[in-house]
Structures are given as C-alpha cells and as structure tokens.
C-alpha cells in the first residue's frame, strides 16, 4: 500500500519483528494515569503510545444539543505533531482524525448506558503521542479503560485490534511497515461478552475467505486484550493515588 521499495514482510514464517502470524506486539495498559480527568488510561502497544482521558457526564455545551433522554457521547482522536517518523505534522484535527473520531464515538455510543444521564455530555479525548501503525485500535482499547476508570456504566467492554494481509498471509496486529507495505488492513473493535463487532473498516484487496479468516483472528485476539484491560482496571484500585504517567 505504500511508496518506495517493498521489503519482504515474512521470512521463514516470521514477521520483520520476529512475531508469528497470530502474535500481537507487546501491550501494556495503565489506568488512572491523569489527575484531573475523571477517568484515564495509557496504552503502550508496540511503538504506539496512546493516552485517553474522560470527562463527564457534565453539562452539554451548546445547550441546544442536549438530549432529554440520554447523554451525548463526544470523542476527539488526535495525533501529536511529533507522533510520526516522517515530517512534523500540524496539530489538531485533520480529515483522517475527524473520520476516526466519528467511528470511535460510534463504538462507545453502542456501549455506554447514556440513558442514565439525560441532558449531559460525556467527553472522550484520545491523544496519540507516538505512532507505529494501529493507532485507532490502540485508541479504542485505551478509551474503554478510561471510561471504566471514570466509573461510567457500560453494557460491555470493548477491545480494538487490527488484522491484515502481508505477503499473502493473514496476520494479527500490523505494525507500521506491515501497514505501509501490506496488502490489506482490517481494523476492528469487538465487545467482550457478545462478541459484537463495533468497529469494522477495511482497505486493500481480500477474498471473502481471507476476510472471514481475518475477522475470526481479530475476535480471538480481542480476548487477550480484554484480559490486559481488566487487569489494568483491577490494578488501579490497588493504588492509593495516581502515580502519574510513565512514558
């Protein structure tokens, strides 16, 4: 999918960073890393560093947007200007981040029990501090933990995971080069109890059979992420006060 000379992505059954096809990069999750936010989480996922903070339920601004039956979910995903290996990028939202913010918001609209908080809004802010491919699924994974940390009631937990096709094989959790030079990318978000598919995007070319395999690999990989998310939430209760962020 990218420009430049295409490197070999799989050599002797191993991926460029030594992983097997079904292995994710190492994932580390910490809940309650911010002091002011009502809920927060930090996810380190391979070379991705993603921070999520939640505010609310709080008064809906502008007031005429308030819904008398439920809280409004708001979500803002942005990437820092220093998050990519390439040149400095402009800070704040761009077309890509506006689309990603929308699809992430829709994930949480399905999960948060917004009917409990009429006339309010719940803000989910996600900032990608360092990017290495798969930032939107890292963002969803972080935001879910931040919402739980804020004590916001949800029907289910959700984990993000991307699966794709590299050198003709279906592989879990594409890294930066795999994303750039791979043949297809399928970011997904899967709920824990119901295995509902809450985010589904795809680009690059796949047969139906390959797509089905990709989807099943994503569903099974989401299990491992859910265990890490739960563990992060449990650990946050063991801390007497937040120790802040350790990048």
């Amino acid at each position: 999918m990218g420009g430049g000379e295409k490197p070999k992505l799989i050599i002797d059954g191993k991926r460029i960073d030594g992983r097997g096809l079904d292995d994710s990069r190492p994932v580390k999750i910490e809940a309650g890393v911010l002091n002011e936010a009502e809920g927060s989480a930090y996810v380190e996922w391979g070379g991705n560093k993603v921070l999520a903070g939640v505010y609310g339920p709080r008064e809906c601004i502008p007031k005429h947007d308030a819904n008398p039956f439920k809280a409004l979910m708001k979500c803002r995903y942005t990437m820092s200007p220093f998050a990519s290996k390439e040149e400095h990028s402009r800070s704040g939202p761009n077309r890509r981040s506006i689309e990603i913010s929308k699809v992430i918001r829709e994930v949480f609209e399905s999960l948060v029990i917004t009917e409990l908080f009429p006339m309010t809004q719940i803000d989910v802010y996600i900032d990608v501090l360092q990017a290495e491919g798969g930032t939107r699924v890292s963002a969803i994974t972080a935001a879910a933990v931040a919402l739980a940390d804020a004590g916001i009631p949800m029907k289910d937990m959700v984990s993000g995971i991307a699966v794709g096709k590299i050198d003709g094989e279906i592989a879990v959790d594409l890294g930066r080069d795999e994303d750039n030079f791979g043949q297809s990318d399928v970011p997904m978000a899967v709920s824990h109890r119901n295995k509902d598919i809450l985010l589904l995007q795809m680009d690059g070319l796949l047969t139906k059979a390959e797509f089905e395999r990709a989807m099943d690999k994503a569903i099974s990989a989401s299990e491992k992420l859910h265990a890490l998310q739960s563990d992060a939430i449990v650990r946050s209760y063991e801390k007497l006060e937040s120790e802040g962020l350790s990048l």
Binding site: E106, S110, D196, I197, L200, Q201, L206, T207, D216
Partner: peptide, 29 residues
C-alpha cells in the same frame, strides 16, 4: 470488485454480529 475481491468496508453506527457481516458480504458481491 469485478475481479471478485473485497476492496473496502466501513461500518457506521451500532453493532453487527460476525454472521451478519458475512451475510452482508455475500449480498454485496
């Protein structure tokens, strides 16, 4: 595509099950 491949997907709004997605893929082809 005319060549029998999936080229892109985008789900919006709420949840779909795995089986609903696969059913939708068949319809789309």
């Amino acid at each position: 595509t005319q060549t029998g491949l999936l080229a892109s997907m985008q789900k919006t709004k709420g949840a779909m099950s795995r089986d609903e997605v696969l059913q939708a893929v068949d319809i789309a082809f």
